[in-house]
Every structure is written in structure tokens, then in C-alpha cells.
């Protein structure tokens, strides 16, 4: 170990040496690294090994890459993949746009009751899965509150088959996800907006820029890192989407499909079913989990690229 002055700024203390610098560096991260190695890294490696086996409960068979080949023929998997991507492509942009819009409005100092609006719109983010799925399932039942309301204001003439029809079931889940997470993302945007100096907007106004132009030319570019951050966390969240589909798709008394015609089956739910609902095949389930990892990695990479190139 010789001098590496770029990495180690000389903070002016005489006894301060490189080895001390590293010692403290490693020490500070040691606890987290220890915990993560034990409870993250070990399980990850262990399940990678597991993915080379096909299993029926305790009975295992080594298949090498056989599970990956099986994937390509597995229609259920392909359907789950398709459903998951639909959720990702439709719901994530709508939610992020909505969050951005609300944040922009709430950042305007002329709007009254900003604190109240902010609190109320964020509130859904504090509810637990159990809470919100129980509430939503009841509200979106055929004769539930939502249909009653829409019928009363004459927006529809027959009740919408929210959780009965494959198409509407997806819509319902998207509505629920939007309800739960818009406020959460909004807080991040709002925080980001507070770091943008008001003078920029004032100057733009003087130059005659309208609200849309201000939004497109100032807000979005300056918020880009945060938008990227929320996009990536939402991507991870959506590709691991599990809670909503399983809880909304209580298909009657004994159904094993997730939503009508498996319309709500996502990859994460399929993994769960392969482990716990069907004959347990943990090896195959682990294989699919790594497919999620690969997809998330690709999508994150693409998002990084998109954000970078527009600069």
C-alpha cells in the first residue's frame, strides 16, 4: 500500500495515515457488511445452487440448466411475465406522472392548504398490505362502494365487473397500486423541487414561459436524478409485485388461479405458488427469481441510459 492521495484527502492530522483511513473505513461498514453477507449473500448463493435442481418437496434431482430450458416452454411463466410487464408498462408511468403533477402543484406557494393536501395524499403509503387489500377488495366488489357511487352519478349504467373480468381485474390492481404509491413518490419529487431555486421559475415567467413550458424545461430536467431513482425503485417493486395480486384475487372459495383466467398472475406470485401452493419445486422457483433479477437489471440499465442521453 503506497500513497493514494486522490482517495485520501489529507485532513491535516499528523498521525493520519492511509492504513488508519482504511481501518476506519472498513470498520464503519463492517456491521452492515457482516449482516448483509450472512442474511443476503449466503441466501443468494444458496438459492443459485438450488436453481440447478428440480424438486418435489424433499425429493431433489440435479438438472443443471434444465430449469432454464423448461422456462421457455412454460406457458404459465410466459403469461406471468406478460402480466407483469403490462403492470410495469402501464401503471408505473401513470403513477410517476401523477406524482410529479401533484408535487408540482403543491410546490406552488400560492396554493392554500398545501400541508393538508400533502399529508392526505401521502397517507395511503403508511397502510399495510393487509389493511389496504382488505379495504380495497370490499370497495371494489360488484355491489361495493365504487360501483354504487359510479351508478349514482350516472357515469355507468351497469356495474363494472371489477374483480370478475380479466381486463377489469388488472385495472383494479393498477388503481390500488396507484392509490398506495403515488403519494410516496410525490414526497420524493416534492423534496427535490424544494431544492430548485424559485428564481429559476421567476426568470422563466419573465421570459414568457407558460406553466407547461416551465414544467418541461425546468422541473423535469432538474428532477431527473430523482425521477430516475423513483423509476428504478418502482421497476423493482413492480417486477416483484406480489401482495396486491394475491390478496385481490381471492378467486371465490377454492380457486387456484390468480384473478379470473390467471389475469393477475405475476412472476412473483408464480414463484410463491411454485413454493407453497403447488407441489413445492423450490429449484424451479429459484430459477424464476433469477429471471426477475436479470429483467430488473436490464430495465434499470435502459432507464439509466435514457436519463443519461437526454442530458
Amino acid at each position: 500500500m503506497t500513497e493514494k492521495p486522490i482517495k485520501m484527502p489529507n485532513y491535516g492530522r499528523p498521525r493520519w495515515t492511509l492504513s488508519r483511513y482504511h481501518r476506519y473505513g472498513w470498520f464503519f461498514i463492517s456491521f452492515a457488511v457482516l449482516v448483509l453477507a450472512l442474511f443476503m449473500l449466503y441466501p443468494i448463493i444458496s438459492s443459485l445452487i438450488m436453481s440447478t435442481y428440480s424438486s418435489r418437496g424433499m425429493i431433489q434431482r440435479f438438472v443443471g440448466l434444465g430449469n432454464y430450458q423448461r422456462l421457455l416452454k412454460d406457458r404459465v411463466f410466459l403469461q406471468a411475465l406478460k402480466n407483469t410487464l403490462i403492470f410495469f408498462i402501464v401503471q408505473v408511468p401513470i403513477m410517476l406522472l401523477l406524482a410529479l403533477l401533484i408535487a408540482t402543484l403543491l410546490n406552488n406557494k400560492d396554493i392554500k392548504f398545501r400541508g393538508l393536501f400533502r399529508t392526505g395524499i401521502f397517507l395511503p403509503a403508511v397502510t399495510s398490505l393487509v389493511t389496504y387489500s382488505t379495504l380495497f377488495k370490499m370497495m371494489f366488489s360488484l355491489e361495493g362502494l365504487v360501483n354504487k357511487f359510479l351508478l349514482n352519478i350516472k357515469l355507468i349504467s351497469t356495474p363494472i365487473p371489477w374483480l370478475v373480468d380479466p381486463f377489469w381485474a388488472k385495472i383494479t390492481v393498477m388503481i390500488a397500486m396507484t392509490w398506495r404509491w403515488t403519494g410516496y413518490n410525490m414526497i420524493f419529487y416534492l423534496s427535490g423541487l424544494q431544492n430548485i431555486p424559485d428564481e429559476l421559475y421567476e426568470a422563466a415567467k419573465i421570459d414568457g414561459a407558460n406553466a407547461y413550458q416551465q414544467f418541461a424545461r425546468i422541473t423535469v430536467p432538474l428532477l431527473k436524478p430523482i425521477i430516475l431513482f423513483t423509476a428504478i425503485t418502482s421497476t423493482i417493486g413492480t417486477l416483484q409485485l406480489f401482495d396486491e395480486p394475491t390478496n385481490f384475487a381471492s378467486g371465490g372459495v377454492t380457486a387456484a388461479t390468480i384473478g379470473p383466467g390467471n389475469s393477475l398472475l405475476t412472476i412473483a406470485v408464480y414463484i410463491y405458488n411454485l413454493c407453497f401452493k403447488y407441489m413445492p419445486n423450490f429449484g424451479y422457483a429459484a430459477t424464476i427469481a433469477y429471471v426477475i433479477v436479470i429483467i430488473v437489471a436490464i430495465l434499470s440499465f435502459v432507464q439509466f441510459k435514457l436519463a443519461g442521453e437526454r442530458r
Partner: peptide, 17 residues
Amino acid sequence: GLFTYEADSALMAVMPD
């Protein structure tokens, strides 16, 4: 048998169509 839920899921997946 072993696969009641797998079978149910397979059948109910085609039922809507």
C-alpha cells in the same frame, strides 16, 4: 392425487375464453 391445484389452475385459466 398430488396436483389438484395445478389442475384447477390450468382448467380455470382457459375457462374465460
